[in-house]
Structures are given as structure tokens and as C-alpha cells.
Amino acid sequence: MMKLFNTILIGITSGSIYSLMAIAIVLVWRSTRVINFAQAGLALASSFVGFEVLTRTGSFWIALPVALLAGAGMSAFIEYFFLRPLLKRSGDESQEIFLPIIATLGLLGVIKAILSFIYGDQNGTISPPVSDKDFIVGANSISMSPMRVLILIVVIVLVSSITWLFQKTSIGLALRASSYSPEISRLAGVRVDLIRTCGWAISGAAGSAAGMLQTANGSGSLSPDSLEFSLLLVFGFVAAVIGGLESLLGAVLGGITLGIFISFVLMYVSGSLVFISAFLILLLVLYVRPQGIIGKKVGRRA
């Protein structure tokens, strides 16, 4: 019984990190209809920025916002200089629909290679800012530590501020309008290009938060080839698809669902089947409910 409870707790914490990554993917998808496979690279790069700030100042609380800003800046940079010209030019020619996907993969490679140049084989470390010792209740230790509580708080704060931004501000309205119909938004005076760059920037910030928290929650070490970031990319994508790729709430639910599922596989089946089980759950969702768990039923021919 205790094991079951702990499994669910671990799943919720790691799932909340996947939610952030899923939100990052969903935001980019909504603003430009591109899956940004460079997202993991951005998260990695901004985590390294966070690591540099952390070693210089010694404070996680300065490092995290700086990393978020760095992620937002890099993401906006990529949108402005790479994706925007590419999407402008390619139009809807059937030959060229893969170009954005391939371009983001190329960017992922470039980011990783540059980081490898700078850091080589040495690893960065982001140690948890608060204790990661499990709480003890009675005779049992439960899988919830101050660090995990912190992660949940950070995720909740970020998700609710993004939701607030989307629902209550004029930028959010412009974001929703330009993803709903770019042409009409343009007619209504929305600067769609600028708003898209905004969407990418917010997504970059969410992704870098995921990177920082994932590193601090996991091994704490940060290397350009670390598995944790391909994990983050794949799980973020799977979580986003479970949520339907369109809604923020869906991304959060998808992340938590995936986190709990993965945690069960990890605790009850085997560690080496984690990745393939993510693939299987992705196939299952795409077969049974391609519009995602809370999506409306629409065609999936994008």
C-alpha cells in the first residue's frame, strides 16, 4: 500500500515537470503549427546558463529566473531568425511540409554541439536548493521531500501565471486570436508575427524551467549528452499529445498522467522499459483518442 502511494507521489512530481515541457511544446504548436524538436536543446542550454549563474552567485533563486529569461530569449531568437523566414517561404507546398521539423532538429544538433564545445566532458551540477530527504511519517518514509514540494509549487506558479496571461491579458487574447485565425487577427490590428515570437518566448521559458527542475530533481549533473534531456523531449511530446496538443490544461493533465504511468512502469516492471512504454502509450492514445484526453473531436490532418 505504501509502495503504491509512493509510486503515485513520484509520478505526480516527475509528471509536473513533463507538464512544463508539454506546455512548451503546446505553446509553439499553437502559435506556429510547428513541433519544436529543439525544445530540449533550449532547455539544456538555459540550464547551463542557470548553472553558470548558480556557481557565480550561489543562489538557486537568482539562477532560476535568469535561466527562464535566457530560455525565452533563445527561443525568440530561433523563431525570429530561423522559423519565421522558413515558414514565410515554404507556404503550403506539399514537398516542404517537413522542412520546419528538420530545421528544428538541425537547431537541436547545433545547440548540442556548441554546448559540447564549451563544456566538453565536464559536467555542470545543479544541486537541489532545499533538502531532498524524504519526509518521515510514522515508521514509513514517503516519497515527498521539500525539493519535490518546491517543484510542485514552482510548476503550479508557472502554469497558473501562463494561464492567467492567456485568459486575462490583452497579450493572451492576441495569442489566442492569432493561433485561431492569423488572417482575421491581422485585420483586427494584431501584430501576428510579434505575437508568435512572444508565444515562442513563453514556451522557451517554460521549457527551461522544466530543464532546471529536472536536473535538480534527478542526478543533479548536467552534461550536453545527458539522457535526461532526450527523456524530457520525448516525454514532453508524449504528454502534449495525450493532452491533445492544443490546450494548456490538457498538457498539464497529460504530463501528470504520463508521470504516474511511467512511475508505475519504473517501480513495478523494469527501468529499461520506460522509454518503450512511453512509445506504447503514445500509440495507444493516438489510436483510441487522437484528439487527446480533453480535446474536441476534430480531424487530425494538420
Partner: peptide, 14 residues
Amino acid sequence: GPYLAGTTLALAVG
């Protein structure tokens, strides 16, 4: 497009 890309990516990693 993008769904297939992500699915095959998950396969390659998994």
C-alpha cells in the same frame, strides 16, 4: 507530419 515525427522519435529513443 508532426505526430508521425514525434512517434517515430519516441521509438528511436525507446
